[in-house]
């Protein structure tokens, strides 16, 4: 019977809140808005990377998009060979 005992005081407790609720909500919204401001290497084919038109902070819609594309890369012995082939050397 915990619920019923509890319920008996809800009415009085919440009764006074309704008057102030609208003001609460209106005060809070502007505040929210104001705040709202080791291993081997890969030679990555530079043309396949970082060209997303929806890059940005926080509010873009293309995070973690699933797709069936493959990924290009370049086979290179070292950083110099990779760069010469137009790639980006990725090592650790």
């Amino acid at each position: 019977m915990k619920e019923r005992a509890f319920g008996s005081i809800v009415a009085s407790a919440v009764a006074g809140l309704f008057v102030m609720s609208a003001a609460h909500a209106q005060d809070a919204a502007p505040e929210a808005k104001a705040e709202a401001t080791k291993a081997a290497a890969y030679c990555q084919n530079a043309s396949c990377k970082g060209k997303s038109a929806c890059q940005g902070h926080g509010n873009e819609s293309c995070k973690g998009q699933n797709s069936c594309k493959g990924h290009g890369f370049i086979e290179a012995k070292d950083g110099a060979a990779c760069k010469k082939a137009g790639g980006k050397w990725m090592t650790k």
Partner: peptide
């Protein structure tokens, strides 16, 4: 647990009202 004064309920219900608006 289960024994609250109206002050506690007012606090929680007040927050729910505030957050409902947001």
């Amino acid at each position: 647990p289960g024994h609250y004064g109206s002050e506690m309920i007012s606090l929680v219900a007040g927050k729910l009202l505030e957050w409902a608006g947001q």
